[in-house]
Structures are given as C-alpha cells and as structure tokens.
Design a protein around this nucleic acid. Structure first.
Length: 206
DNA sequence: TAGTATCT
DNA sequence: TATG
C-alpha cells in the first residue's frame, strides 16, 4: 500500500548525517546533557509526567510543568542557563531552514523503548514563519503527522538515525507525534533509545 | 488568561 | 504563569 505524498512544507531528508556525523553529534549532545541534565517534564495542571526525558540548549529552552508550556532561559532543575547550541546544528539550520536568523532553542528529547509522544503542535513560538528542524539519532521511531486540525487525517512513516525532518510553510502547525520506538534498530547509542533534536526560532524577528 | 506534547 |  503506497502512502500519500508528504504534505506541503514537510521535507524529509534521509541520511543527512552519516555515521561519523551522528557520532560527532552524539558527542556534542553528551556534553550538553552533562551540563544540563535530562529531566522528566510534567503536564500542565495535572502534573502527569511525560514518558520522554528532556533538556535544551540555546538561549531559550522549552519547558512544561503544572504552570504550562513556555520557553525560558534557565534549566528548571539546575537554575543554570542552557548550554550553547552545538556548531554543527547551527550549520544544519543554515543549510535547511531558509530563515535569516539563527535558532534560539534546541529541544533534546530522549525516548527509551517505551516512550511515546502524543499528537501535538509546536505552537509556543512567536516566529511561526520559521520552520522546526528535527534530527533523529539512535533507534528508529514510527512518526505520525496530520494537518492543522487535530481531526485531520494522518499518515506515518519511520524516522531513522541521521534523518533530518523539516516542518515548515503550510505544515508548520501540523499535528505530529511519535507512536513507537523500535528497540535495537540502531547501534549508535550503546544503551539504546532515541534522541530527537528540534531546532526552533522562538522570537520574531531578532 | 486559557489550551496544552498526559492518558485509554 | 496557575489563575480564582
């Protein structure tokens, strides 16, 4: 059964990072996590924990707690500023984002083999004219994308280590999520799991 | 300044 | 940024 074409504004680039590039990226992310440890966010109001663990790098980081979703300059656990975005990711943004200002946030999501991400939209950014640029590392996942309304039809496909995914244009506010992780599908991370990096421009224009 | 990336 |  053949899938419909990707919606306009979606760009999936298989294997943007080769193995060496992925290894270098993981080293950079390890340095970020050493300074800004992964933590488990909670849902607004209910306090229900996410199944993914998160951290950020860049001047701003996306956080969620009982008070809501927001971007803030400090790690909610350590109180320290987020580390800088690694150069290789700034370079990636320059090559694929088609946006005249640098990203301000790089959200780092770690999925263990049971983690999921429910269908949602990235809409906490003022700069909705800038795309969201995503990098997959480690185990593959089943990714799902729909339209601007939660009820719009969805399609899904696998994202593998080294893939780059750009959510922009008419699809910038498309609902998307991660249905499942495929454990053991990559040897990049010794202890398994998937890391997703999403680069965002938060403020307009800059 | 009112919804939410939780969850079945 | 809980919030009524």
């Amino acid at each position: 059964m053949k899938n419909a074409p990707l919606p306009e504004g979606i760009r999936l680039i298989d294997g943007w990072f080769d193995r060496d590039g992925q290894v270098a990226l993981i080293a950079a992310i390890r340095a970020v996590v050493a300074e800004a440890p992964l933590y488990r966010p909670e849902m607004p109001r209910t306090g229900k924990p996410f199944s993914v663990r998160m951290t950020n790098c860049g001047p701003l980081g996306w956080v969620s707690d009982r008070a809501g979703y927001r971007y803030q300059p400090l790690h909610p656990v350590t109180g320290c500023p987020w580390p800088a975005i690694p150069e290789v990711l700034l370079a990636l943004w320059g090559e694929v984002a088609d946006y005249p200002h640098p990203p301000e946030a790089c959200l780092v999501n770690f999925y263990d083999e049971t983690a999921r991400m429910g269908l949602h939209r990235d809409e906490d950014e003022a700069a909705l004219d800038a795309p969201v640029v995503s990098v997959s590392l480690g185990d593959s996942c089943l990714f799902r994308i729909g339209g601007r309304e939660r009820s719009d039809p969805t399609r899904s496909f696998r994202l593998a280590s080294g893939d780059v995914f750009v959510l922009g244009g008419p699809s910038r506010l498309a609902f998307h999520g991660v249905d499942r992780i495929y454990p053991g599908s990559s040897t990049l991370l010794e202890r398994g799991g998937r890391i997703n990096l999403t680069l965002r421009r938060v403020t307009s224009p800059g």
